[in-house]
């Protein structure tokens, strides 16, 4: 927003335009290896060193028993556990609509993974659809560096 002066929307009551913007120095902290993993085409989950509970997401301590977890590499193939196609969204994502969100389930893993599903018409998405992870060639170090597409055996 570069306009100079004050922009008014109304005078009674007096309503004016205000712009607000801020930069953050955001640390992924203990979850950092997950994001580095994505740049190498690896999807890292967490396995509890105490009770063996396996998470498909980063979580440095087990929420079941409290013990530290260890990183493990997920097999990049899973199935659609549930899905939706968003025709609207938060402002930051409005230009990307429609997009399809899925929760992915993996064999033998206790929890799910939220991602986008690409390369398929929204009306063809179904629960149980086999999907495979794809990784960005040029990473943005965000969780969107990974997404899923229908697996070939479809």
């Amino acid at each position: 927003m570069s306009e100079k002066g004050t922009r008014l929307f109304g005078v009674d009551p007096l309503i004016l335009h205000e712009h607000y913007e801020i930069d953050y120095r955001h640390s992924y902290a203990e979850d950092s290896p997950f994001f580095v993993g994505l740049t190498k085409g690896k999807l890292l989950g967490s396995r509890c060193t105490g009770c063996g509970y396996t998470y498909a997401t980063p979580r440095s301590h087990c929420m079941e028993c409290g013990a530290p977890t260890a990183w493990y590499e997920l097999v990049a193939k899973g199935r659609v556990h549930t899905f939706t196609t968003c025709h609207y969204g938060g402002e930051a994502f409005l230009h990307e609509t429609p997009f399809t969100l899925i929760l992915v389930e993996f064999d033998g893993i206790n929890t799910l993974f939220l991602s986008r599903l690409k390369g398929i018409a929204p009306e063809s998405v179904r629960i149980g659809l086999p999907v495979v992870a794809r990784f960005a060639k040029t990473p943005s170090f965000k969780v969107t560096d990974v997404w899923f597409e229908p697996a070939e055996e479809r």
Binding site: G89, G90, L101, S115
Partner: peptide, 21 residues
């Protein structure tokens, strides 16, 4: 904001997935 917001950024989408299941 690390794992869910960047993917969906939309609560209706989250609830839609819940009811789909």
């Amino acid at each position: 904001t690390n794992f869910d917001f960047p993917v969906g950024g939309f609560y209706t989408g989250y609830y839609a997935m819940m009811v789909q299941r």
